[in-house]
Simulated scan of single mutants.
Amino acid sequence: MQHKLANILRLGSKELWSLWRDPMMLLLILYTFSASIYIAGTSMPETLHKAPIAVVDEDQSMLSGRIVAALYPPYFKPPVLISLAEVDAALDAGIYSFVLNIPPDFEQDLLAGRARSIQLSVDATRISQAFSGSGYIEQIVSSEINEFRQRHRLNTSLPVDLVLRASYNPNLTSSWFGSLMELINAVTMISIILTGAALIREREHGTIEHLLVMPVTPAEIMLAKILSMGLVVLLATGFSLTLMIELVLQVPVAGSVPLFLLVTALQLFATTSMGIFMATVARSMPQFGLLLILVLLPLQLLSGGMTPRESMPALIQHLMLAAPNTHFVAAAQAILYRGAGLDVVWPQLLALLLIGAVLFRFSLRRFRQSLSSL
């Protein structure tokens, strides 16, 4: 046993030196766990934010002025007053997401009790802004019209008082979600790339044949790659969580960082094994890259990180229980967002361990077959 551990340690050191001499791979790791996290945390959220809007004010009344003044940042950019003849050209050019047309004599007809309509033109190609922004504008216009008709701001108390409390993210800050989810996705992506690239690099450089004539077993070779690449990703995860997320982005981490790193280590056990398996299927790095796209996108999109699993079809929910990302996302969100402990996330840890063991077994069998064909 001691001899096997020594072989794994020496082979793992070789893998780390090979990675150190690969500047492009080092640059990818550095970017993914630093700049990519920062961009995901500070980029424009999917909700309404600084949407460009124009207003055709044909009424030029006090009410129309109140409606225009209510379209304020940060939801909208300062409204631009344009003429009716400019609307079609502006929408065709994609200058504005919304154009609100207030017809002439709108205030006068409203006070006289005559029904009038306000036209809202929406650029539906900007789907996220179009969906949420049209609802925002409808609420703003209705609120201003009701207040104007009442000649005062309503202050009536309802028999039921609805109190909104946002748990775990009181200010609904998008960077708290975006940065942590980017870190979770980065763990999966980089671990698969590193282990797969390490094996393909051995095959392309011809050093895999040198290993076969040495007194080492395929299991030792595979474990060395898994442990060394997993260690690199685990250290990069701890660095990114401490420096980029907590220090730079000022995102509070509610739970235990060591517990999250334990969950990450189990996830790495599964994904690095997956990377080895994919590298035995692909014959070159371009093939590996194409295969990675087919595997990585479903893992990230269907794991529950972007869309709640409850909103997915039942078949997808059941199938994705076999994917490590589903359990990793659930455990990571519970720990980092809600401060959950081991008593809450132990089912996810057990699932990750079982999935990792199965993937390791399949990958080892495939790895032995690929070595025997050389």
Rank of each mutant, 00 (worst) to 15 (best):
E246V: 08
G12Y: 05
L299K: 01
T195I: 04
F177A: 07
L234Y: 08
E204P: 02
I118M: 04
P103E: 00
V344D: 08
V329W: 04
V99W: 04
F33P: 00
E107G: 02
E15D: 14
I193N: 00
D57L: 03
N146W: 09
Q250K: 15
S132I: 15
R365N: 11
A89Q: 15
P52C: 07
I193T: 06
R116Y: 01
I82F: 09
A89V: 15
G255T: 11
F360R: 06
P103W: 00
L71N: 00
L235F: 13
G305V: 10
A70V: 01
Y31R: 02
P52W: 03
A40G: 03
S284M: 08
K50A: 12
L194D: 06
A322N: 04
L342G: 02
S372C: 03
L234P: 06
S157Q: 13
E202L: 14
S303W: 12
T242C: 05
Q369H: 10
V257M: 11
L259F: 12
L364N: 12
E220R: 08
G238A: 15
M306W: 14
L19C: 05
L223S: 11
E182F: 06
P347D: 11
R126E: 11
G206P: 04
G12R: 07
E58A: 14
L164G: 01
S228T: 04
G304S: 12
L336F: 07
A270W: 05
I39C: 05
L352H: 07
L249A: 12
P79Q: 12
I208A: 13
M229H: 15
A351P: 07
E246I: 09
S175Q: 14
V257N: 09
I200N: 03
I226T: 07
W346I: 04
A279S: 15
